[in-house]
């Protein structure tokens, strides 16, 4: 592009605005990280901003001893892996036929799926159904009811239609491939980017899922991480304990309260880290994957 007159000033302003935007996000994240590595007292007194003060790993050491939490962590990993596997296979298997020009009945089938985006039976009827199917308090109650996402099927179908030439499939057919052969030997190997995006979306959904577990699970041993997180991070707002104690007890109690507070910062990090890393790893596929969904509409 040709350079305009005031380009330097304009660029400076734009870059500066960009910097402010970055700071608005980064400051919060950095503060949480720094706080989790700091001396509890310093955090509570408000002396920690961008860098840790009184560096120590106490919060993480306490965290390691919390057996509940690691059980939740383990459960969440299992639910995420199994759930994502189900989601991605169902999405690809459904999107592929719908992307085929010669697939009879795809209009009706698409409507069948799309209808559920606009009208659903709602929370209670779904709950009654899950219960009557005997899935109450089991892993499947978290994984099966939302296993098919119409929105992702459509994104995926659009990707297959636009980025894999139909001619390849036709010539494969002439070479004697059947439909499953085409799907496994041609379509899947060419769908890397969209599969990466699907894995990311679905896995994130399972990892962060709180509501299904809240209504369907009763057994503490089956709780996913988010339930334990909600107990520690949200439902533990203790107020007014401090007034009832003697001075010495007060000091000890205060120290304990400070540490409990710090533990929460560490917990935020430990629970969010896996997805931040996965996000950075799969990041290059994102814009591509989202663009397929966004532009085509």
């Amino acid at each position: 592009m040709v350079k305009g007159k005031n380009d330097y000033i304009f660029n400076f302003i734009i870059n500066f605005l960009g910097f402010i935007i970055i700071c608005s996000v980064l400051f919060v994240l950095l503060f949480i990280i720094s706080a989790s590595f700091s001396d509890p007292r310093e955090v509570v007194l408000g002396n920690v901003f961008l860098f840790p003060k009184g560096f120590n790993l106490d919060a993480y050491k306490t965290l390691i001893e919390k057996a509940d939490l690691w059980m939740g962590y383990k459960n969440s990993i299992i639910y995420t892996i199994v759930g994502t596997l189900i989601n991605v296979s169902l999405t690809m298997l459904t999107a592929y036929p719908l992307s085929r020009r010669d697939f009879k009945g795809k209009g009706i089938i698409t409507i069948f799926f799309m209808f559920t985006m606009y009208f659903s039976g709602g929370l209670v009827p779904t709950f009654i159904l899950v219960k009557s199917l005997g899935m109450y308090n089991s892993m499947w109650s978290l994984l099966l009811p939302g296993a098919v996402s119409t929105y992702n099927i459509i994104i995926c179908r659009t990707f297959l239609q636009t980025s894999i030439p139909y001619e390849i499939q036709e010539s494969a057919k002439i070479d004697g491939f059947n439909d499953f052969g085409i799907f496994f030997k041609i379509i899947l190997p060419l769908s890397g980017p969209i599969i990466a995006v699907l894995v990311m979306f679905y896995a994130l959904g399972h990892w962060n899922n709180y509501f299904s577990a809240l209504i369907y699970l009763t057994d503490r041993k089956k709780y996913p991480l988010q339930i334990f997180l909600s107990e520690i991070l949200v439902r533990s707002q203790q107020v007014g304990i401090e007034q009832m104690m003697s001075d010495e007890d007060l000091l000890a109690a205060q120290k304990q309260a400070d540490q409990a507070e710090l533990l929460k910062y560490a917990l935020v990090i430990v629970s969010s880290l896996p997805f931040m890393i996965l996000y950075l790893m799969l990041q290059k596929y994102f814009v591509k994957g989202i663009m397929v969904g966004a532009i085509k509409g």
Partner: peptide
């Protein structure tokens, strides 16, 4: 999981 609940 989507149509049966509508019946429900």
């Amino acid at each position: 999981f989507s149509y049966v609940p509508i019946y429900g």
